[in-house]
């Protein structure tokens, strides 16, 4: 079997706050296969962005502890020095951010953003040639009048347009791993559909793996091969998208799916009853126990391990019973 591109093992991230230690990630284990698209879903606050940031070694200022490993193509990124991590960024790993309104520098043109990314890969490339590549990248993300848009400043572009520019930046890197953290959440529904279509059509160009983070199971079903469901800084279920969405085993995944279906029917947002896990609260037993409709006493005592199910892996001691 080929080694996965990334394998994360027991990743923990803690930060000190004035309410106490926040357990942002509570032992994440997952793998990202080569050339595959992994969808990560979970409610707001489940730690998706924190996981993505940690994969780029961007730790919060108040971080008080990181442990576990993030093995990227045989190298544990957490053990690298800052300058070594930097050599991965923009070469082998690239990221598309959630909010395109703030992710581009307001006082530089689109051209400057793109040319600097190109020159990072090929230092000393003549500006003319870099501009030609930048223009081609804009065209390939579906921006008409690419030459004119190169001279535009971010505030002159719509949100969807800016996100296309971000995708063009990522394309220029041709990374082994592209992390897209909710790339469409800040956009309206039609633009969202366009961007997802674009990402789908670019799969050939981006030969590497993609991590696609979303709240939205529908988008993930459309785009991804693998799925990882996060809750309270843990992975509660993982497997092939086709399997997990058809046979969700963890009660949290089921609840998420139920919300999605109801949303579609009535056109408004339905959420899972109960409060999202507070990262400062200690974890005894299953993290989802306080909100789980199937909870029994045993759930509150031991932390359930991720174990094989008929649709992948799930972290629930009762998934056979409640299936």
């Amino acid at each position: 079997m080929v080694h996965p591109l990334v394998s994360i093992r027991d990743l923990k991230l803690e930060a000190s706050t004035n309410r106490g230690v926040a357990h942002i990630l509570r032992g994440i284990s997952l793998e990202i296969g080569r050339g595959r698209i992994l969808g990560i879903v979970g409610e707001s606050g489940s730690g998706k962005s924190s996981l993505a940031q940690t994969m780029l070694s961007f730790l919060p200022a108040n971080v008080s502890g990181v442990s576990g490993e993030i093995v990227f193509d045989g190298v544990d990124l957490l053990k690298l020095r800052p300058s070594e991590v930097q050599s991965y960024r923009g070469r082998r790993i690239a990221k598309i951010f959630q909010d395109p309104m703030t992710a581009l520098n307001p006082v530089f043109t689109v051209a400057t953003h793109l040319v600097d990314v190109i020159r990072r890969r090929e230092p000393g490339l003549p500006r003319k040639e870099a501009l030609r590549q930048a223009e081609a990248a804009l065209t390939s993300v579906g921006i008409a009048d690419a030459r004119l848009r190169l001279e535009a400043y971010p505030h002159q572009l719509s949100g969807g347009m800016r996100q296309r520019v971000m995708i063009a930046m990522a394309l220029l890197v041709r990374p082994d791993l592209l992390i897209a953290d909710e790339p469409t959440t800040a956009l309206d529904a039609t633009v969202e559909a366009q961007i997802v279509d674009l990402l789908k059509s670019l799969r050939q160009e981006l030969s590497g793996s993609i991590v696609f983070i979303s709240h939205h199971l529908g988008l993930v079903a459309e785009l991804c091969d693998d799925l990882c469901v996060m809750y309270g800084g843990t992975v509660v279920e993982s497997g092939l998208v086709a399997d997990v969405l058809v046979r969700p085993r963890h009660p949290y995944t089921r609840a998420l799916l139920a919300c999605e279906i109801e949303d579609d029917a009535e056109g408004r947002l339905v959420s899972i009853p109960g409060e999202v896990q507070d990262p400062v609260a200690p974890m005894t037993g299953c993290i989802f126990a306080p909100r789980c409709p199937h909870v029994v006493e045993a759930c509150r005592v031991t932390v359930p391990a991720l174990r094989p199910s008929d649709s992948g892996r799930a972290a629930c001691i009762r998934f056979e019973e409640i299936a």
Binding site: F58, G90, A94, R120, V173
Partner: peptide, 13 residues
């Protein structure tokens, strides 16, 4: 600012 994080995420020195 987030845009500075973008520059860093793209490995600019």
């Amino acid at each position: 600012e987030p845009y500075i994080r973008t520059s860093r995420a793209y490995g600019l020195s």
